[in-house]
């Protein structure tokens, strides 16, 4: 056994293709200030050149290096080793909800297909494109999304219930909220939002907890959308006043 200089830690990475997987354990000498992605790239460079991992910016802005570190969905580049208990092996798994391609790389293309179905920003024909910051604050929060899909991964409606056909997931409710609340957007989206499974969400807030951009997904996107759908389709007052309203 060859050991490197520096503090030795044990890292276990789930490796394999498709459903054939096993954890492979590595002994790694780490340096101060490293994040989990540093360790994984170190292993790839020195010990396992065939280790598959997706990453780009290493600055928590591209959303590529999503994984489950010690069971928690996180960006590997934003997970510092000194925040982990290094007396036990650091366990790195790929995100669970999407099919594994190889090692830590999963196929998240389902999300891109869902995204295509969303009607893009649809301004009024005579929109002046002048609005105040207070009108756009809510929308800008939704635009912070880096599409790491950690929220999609942790949401039990997808993760455990596999409702891929009936539920677009928190990431796309964030996008829909940004469009629905936009002061210049003119599309009628609420019927589609209901069909996209907004009521399958049971508010357990895991999406919010894992969001690396600190978007308040549940409180600022999903719940406001639920309330708007209730307003539109299930409001008692609308039901009472419907016979008197002009079409």
């Amino acid at each position: 056994m060859v050991q490197e200089e520096g503090r030795q830690i044990t890292v276990r990475i789930l490796r394999g293709e498709g459903v054939k997987t096993q954890e492979v354990e590595y002994q790694v000498a780490v340096e101060p200030g490293w994040v989990v992605l540093d360790v994984v790239l170190h292993i790839q460079a020195r010990m396992a050149p065939d280790l598959a991992v997706r990453w780009n910016c290493k600055a928590a802005k591209c959303g590529s290096c999503s994984a489950e570190v010690n069971g928690k969905p996180r960006l590997m580049c934003k997970t510092r080793l000194d925040d982990l208990d290094l007396t036990k092996p650091v366990v790195v798994h790929p995100i669970k909800t999407f099919p594994r391609i190889k090692d830590l790389v999963t196929d998240v293309s389902w999300n891109f297909e869902v995204n295509k179905k969303i009607q893009p920003f649809t301004p009024k024909k005579d929109a002046a494109f002048i609005y105040f910051q207070e009108d756009i604050d809510r929308v800008q929060e939704m635009r912070k999304c880096i599409e790491c899909f950690l929220c999609q991964n942790v949401c039990h409606v997808l993760r455990n219930r596999e409702q891929y056909q009936r539920f677009v997931g928190p990431r796309f409710f964030v996008r829909l909220a940004g469009l629905e609340m936009h002061p210049l957007d003119d599309a009628d989206r609420l019927k589609q939002i209901e069909e996209d499974g907004i009521f399958l969400c049971n508010i357990t807030k895991c999406c919010t907890h894992v969001c690396p951009e600190d978007i308040h997904i549940t409180d600022n996107a999903i719940i406001p959308l639920k309330e708007r759908v209730i307003d539109k389709s299930y409001s008692f007052w609308n039901w009472v006043l419907q016979p008197f309203s002009s079409k």
């Binding site: 942790v154 039990h156 455990n160 219930r161 499974g197 009521f199 399958l200 969400c201 357990t204 895991c206």
Partner: peptide, 28 residues
């Protein structure tokens, strides 16, 4: 959110396996 987790394990916590299967209607 609190009682869906605590009383119905749906899910019990984030990234913890609760009830599985496609027979799920949430609050719909």
């Amino acid at each position: 959110g609190a009682y869906w987790r605590s009383f119905f394990a749906n899910p019990p916590a984030c990234a913890v396996t609760g009830w599985e299967g496609k027979n799920y209607a949430g609050e719909a």
